[in-house]
Design a protein around this nucleic acid. Sequence first.
DNA 1: ATTCAAGGCGCG
DNA 2: AAAGCGCGCCTTGAAT
Length: 283
Amino acid sequence: MVSPKTERVHTSYHQAVTATGRLSSTDPNLQNIPIRSEQGRKIRQAFIAPTNYKIVAIDYSQIELRIMAHLSNDKGLVTAFSEGKDIHRATAAEIFAVELDEVTTDQRRSAKAINFGLIYGMSAFGLAKQLNIGRHQAQEYQDKYFQRYPGVLTYMEDTRQQASEQGFVETLFGRRLYLPDIKAKNGMRKKAAERAAINAPMQGTAADIIKKAMLAVAAWLSEQNDDRVKMTMQVHDELIFEIHQDIVEETTAKLVELMNNAVELSVPLIAEAGMGDNWDEAH
DNA sequence: ATTCAAGGCGCG
DNA sequence: AAAGCGCGCCTTGAAT
């Protein structure tokens, strides 16, 4: 797949494929290059910067949960983000009724699973399977969560209702996902449509935001007219750049700022940068 | 030789 | 029976 012209590998991005407004990447797909395992990382290390250049990866921190905070306007969630808290730890402290510094590794792990599960519309059954606990206990976790973050519960209920009444849901910027199965007689199809309805405003708004960030970056790059900075990839909540080593520090700072200010939410939007000679080191 | 569906698995 | 969102690629087995 190396281009004879550039002697590099080029993906193709597709802008009108996904249900939520994300890009997709093919031939090759560069949005699912391994990173989680040690063995996988070795593959990522094969993506290297040109001589005298660095790979810079800048990713949004917890963007979907921040969007949930913004959309639901839940007081506890908004406050936690505004105070710069570790959100999974903060959630654990609330659910398990302990102080922040008393949260155990296991409690944080559980809270993280709950936070992710919420974004996906997961049920108590799914949470139980994920955490390898009983259904009853999973239900208690969920109940406790909604007790502590009532705004999130209201948001979930409102989203389902709106989906049912209108047949679609919207991102913060108004892009719609139509849900033909939302009134299906088949309970499973209906439940699946409800989960998609819950997820789409968050995943979709995140997609909207990074597209705005890419436009802001592109405009700035065009203004700079300096070919020592290149935006080379997008992986859903992160942008990857190649930057000449002579200007990497100040350029990275500027790019982080552009991403942070792509939109304004009721909670801070935080982008974090990593740098290295290869894509693995940049994380 | 090509196409399709299903299962498995990589990522956010 | 299935109960977690969004993707793309590989392999397998069957059909065209």
